[in-house]
Amino acid sequence: MTSSSARPRLVLAMSAEVCGELLDPVVVRRLAAVAEFDPGLVVTDFADPAVREALAGAEALLTGWGCPPLTGEALDRMPALRTVVHAAGSVKHHVTTACWERGLTVASAAAANAVPVAEYTVAAILFAGKGVLAAAHAYRRDRRPPAGPAAFGRVGNFGRTVGVVGASRIGRRVIELLRPFDLRVLLHDPYLTKDQVRELGAEPAGLDELARRSDVVTLHAPELPSTRHLFDAARLALLPDGATLVNTARGSLVDTEALTAELVRGRLHAVLDHTEPEVLPPGSPLYELPNVLLTPHVAGSLGNELSRLAHAAVAELERYAAGLPYADPVRPETLSRSA
């Protein structure tokens, strides 16, 4: 990879709100050292006549949430464009086939965004094994602790089995973070061999086997036609009584109606940061059930974690300006089966 100048001309393309959160003074100084750009110019519409001149000379785009799609028509306005660096995870919302047809290179901060999702997931797994959600609800209801350790039931994380579905960046990070704990980790990923699964520190398992054996199942598969309702009524029925399903991936991986039925019965527990629909209807029982922890898509980067994304993106731009390959490139051949 080579850049056409020591300091390529860069344009910011994302929502103004996101830009304000990402570009703190430290990031702006670091960007200014590597690229020529106007920190006050944030493009939200590639067809806006006011940004025509800036886009015409842009060699690089720094994108974020809210970036418009990079269609062929949009790219016609950027004849000098050579690369796109995304200061977030998935690029599917704005990187189109036109980008690959024109030979653009693309990088993202997906690895950085995987960190907080994996941390959230590990916290959910450990809390699930410990029975924290049920204990908290009981304590709130009864206003007194249970009478003795036996009253908590069969809880604890010693020797529990965790099933990880998908060896994505997040799935791999979860496995890595679980290593210090006394847990057995199963992994299902159709793109890995059994030896590759073992190299990651997990035991290979078919999807149904994983469902039957796991105390906690955590989903890290991409949203594809083949993964829609991966956990349907039949597969949810395979989970042991009292098992917990953690979904920080995509709501479409789970049949919401079937899961709701299991949760209403009280047979399963769930930690859901994604649902289908993304916002459940007001009457959904999942808002109130004591065996459900429902969060509004907060596992990914928020607050000061956005700085990690910004610095990861700037590091890639530094590599580009130095003529080095990206550390975390996005490749068209793998994009179709990634998040």
Rank of each mutant, 00 (worst) to 15 (best):
residue 267 R to Y: 08
residue 297 H to N: 12
residue 98 A to I: 12
residue 23 L to G: 06
residue 206 G to E: 10
residue 245 L to R: 06
residue 288 E to N: 13
residue 76 D to N: 09
residue 254 V to K: 04
residue 176 E to H: 12
residue 5 S to Q: 12
residue 37 F to A: 07
residue 156 G to K: 13
residue 73 E to V: 11
residue 16 A to N: 07
residue 318 E to A: 07
residue 120 Y to D: 06
residue 201 G to E: 02
residue 326 Y to Q: 09
residue 2 T to L: 14
residue 15 S to H: 10
residue 83 T to S: 15
residue 6 A to P: 15
residue 171 G to L: 02
residue 227 T to K: 04
residue 127 F to G: 06
residue 302 L to W: 12
residue 201 G to V: 04
residue 200 L to S: 00
residue 320 Y to D: 07
residue 273 D to C: 14
residue 317 L to W: 09
residue 92 K to R: 15
residue 88 A to E: 01
residue 33 A to I: 13
residue 236 L to M: 01
residue 252 S to N: 13
residue 274 H to S: 11
residue 233 A to F: 08
residue 224 L to V: 03
residue 93 H to A: 13
residue 258 A to S: 02
residue 243 A to M: 09
residue 215 D to Q: 07
residue 273 D to K: 13
residue 103 G to E: 07
residue 11 V to L: 09
residue 264 V to C: 03
residue 238 L to P: 00
residue 113 N to F: 03
residue 248 T to W: 05
residue 263 L to I: 02
residue 310 A to I: 02
residue 255 D to A: 15
residue 320 Y to A: 07
residue 329 P to S: 03
residue 309 L to S: 04
residue 321 A to F: 07
residue 116 P to G: 02
residue 231 F to H: 03
residue 199 E to Y: 02
residue 283 G to R: 12
residue 10 L to S: 14
residue 321 A to I: 08
residue 18 V to C: 05
residue 227 T to D: 04
residue 181 F to A: 01
residue 142 D to T: 11
residue 206 G to L: 13
residue 74 A to M: 02
residue 34 V to Y: 04
residue 250 R to N: 08
residue 108 S to W: 06
residue 275 T to K: 11
residue 224 L to N: 05
residue 295 T to D: 06
residue 38 D to R: 12
residue 23 L to R: 05
residue 187 L to V: 06
residue 220 H to K: 10
residue 198 R to D: 00
residue 255 D to E: 12
residue 96 T to C: 10
residue 199 E to L: 13
residue 269 H to K: 13
residue 193 T to C: 08
residue 11 V to W: 01
residue 289 L to Y: 04
residue 203 E to N: 13
residue 119 E to L: 00
residue 236 L to R: 04
residue 64 G to T: 04
residue 256 T to N: 09
residue 192 L to D: 09
residue 304 N to C: 10
residue 140 R to V: 12
residue 332 P to L: 06
residue 82 R to S: 08
residue 292 V to M: 02
residue 152 F to W: 10
residue 19 C to A: 15
residue 322 A to D: 09
residue 253 L to F: 10
residue 127 F to A: 11
residue 331 R to F: 11
residue 69 P to M: 00
residue 68 P to R: 01
residue 238 L to D: 00
residue 37 F to Q: 03
residue 44 T to R: 12
residue 264 V to G: 01
residue 170 I to Q: 00
